[in-house]
Computed example of a mutant assay.
Amino acid sequence: MIHFPDGAAFARALQALPEPDEQAIAAAAARQAMLTKPAGSLGRLEEIALFMAGWQRQERPRADRIRAAIFAGNHGVAARGVSAYPAAVTAQMVANFRGGGAAINALAAACGAELSIVPLELDRPTADICQAPAMSEADCLAALNAGAAVVDADCDLLIVGEMGIGNSTPAAALCAQSFGGQPQDWIGRGTGVDEAGLARKADAVARALHRHASHCTNAFETLRRLGGREIAAMAGAVLAARLMRVPVLLDGFICGAAVAGLARDNPAITDHCIAGHVSAEAGHARLLHAFGLTALLQLDMRLGEGSGAAVAAQIVRSALAAHDQMTTFTEAAVAQAL
């Protein structure tokens, strides 16, 4: 199991990222060249197969074991009216996840993913980021390690998602701190706030940046000052997955924001990640552009919960099925192009 004993260890891990296996990629590419289809005719499905081969270090990668880990946390900034729902909804939705009644339950089952629900001290919200750091160092480390703990080296693909009323506000602050721009560039309607709620979000992000920007000198400090427990947990899961060479399917804006500070310190952190979808949340397309990632799907989703990534997992499974199950020209006695 990956464990980060302190912020320095987290920083060292972020600078020691393993690379994909180039030999496995070459072997997978050679197989692709022999399959009964014109070269490149399956488009991104072929790219996905090679991507997965490199991280799984095998010519014929698998998607037999997909884990969807959904983290939940509460935020002090929610008291500023930045969400259309009260903070109590976070715990209510966790109960719904556990009861099997949420979108992610249905979508995880549809793509064959095992679902892990990880609530993080819901009775103790983070501090209001407009007034203080969201978390102490100990709290941030606990959240990072809760995320790392869900990653298993035997997992073929990891989906990370979240639930946390008000969390699109710290997500916007993380993105603005990591990639620049004004609060208005990163905020969106989240749970469906009106114009007044949108203005409160912009004000909260501006206040948080004014208070913390000069102290956000590395990914750990950025996460602990501007993030939240579920956001830090996703960051810990993504980094642990990279250290174990487990490919990650990213969900929406808040999931991406969890990686923003890491990407500022080491842009290579997203090399083992596929963007499952581009959400309807205003800043997500901008964030994916900063990562250099092109989403598999655009379905105007903005639910969170890992829902978009779970839908995209079907695309990954299709890519690997074609790569593994198609016959070669020789096996099928089909003449290759001259």
Rank of each mutant, 00 (worst) to 15 (best):
S279P: 00
G304N: 03
A285I: 04
R286P: 08
V311D: 03
A312Q: 04
F291L: 14
R302S: 03
G292K: 12
A309T: 09
S279I: 05
E281H: 09
A309I: 12
S279C: 02
G308M: 03
F291S: 10
A310G: 12
A310T: 13
L287A: 11
H284L: 10
L303N: 05
A290F: 12
E305H: 08
S307E: 01
G308A: 05
M301W: 05
A285N: 00
V311N: 05
A312C: 01
A282R: 14
L296A: 06
A280D: 06
L297R: 10
G292T: 09
L299T: 10
L296I: 03
A282M: 10
G306L: 07
H277F: 03
L299E: 04
A285H: 09
F291Q: 06
A295Y: 13
S279L: 05
D300R: 13
L288M: 11
H284C: 10
S307W: 06
Q298G: 10
F291G: 11
F291D: 12
T294S: 15
A290H: 11
V278W: 05
V278L: 10
G304C: 07
L287R: 08
A310I: 02
A310C: 15
H277C: 04
V278M: 09
E305L: 09
V311P: 01
R286A: 15
L293Q: 13
A295T: 08
A309N: 11
L287I: 12
G306H: 02
G283Y: 12
M301R: 00
R286W: 07
T294E: 15
H289I: 01
L303F: 11
R286H: 12
V311K: 04
G292S: 09
Q298Y: 00
D300S: 05
E281D: 08
E305N: 08
A295G: 10
G304I: 04
F291H: 11
A290C: 14
L297T: 08
A282I: 06
H277N: 01
H277D: 03
A285E: 14
F291P: 07
F291C: 13
M301L: 15
L296V: 04
G292M: 11
Q298D: 12
H284E: 06
T294K: 15
S279E: 01
A310W: 13
H277W: 08
D300W: 07
V278I: 13
M301F: 02
L287M: 15
L293S: 14
A310P: 08
Q298R: 14
A295W: 13
D300T: 00
R302I: 02
L287C: 14
D300K: 09
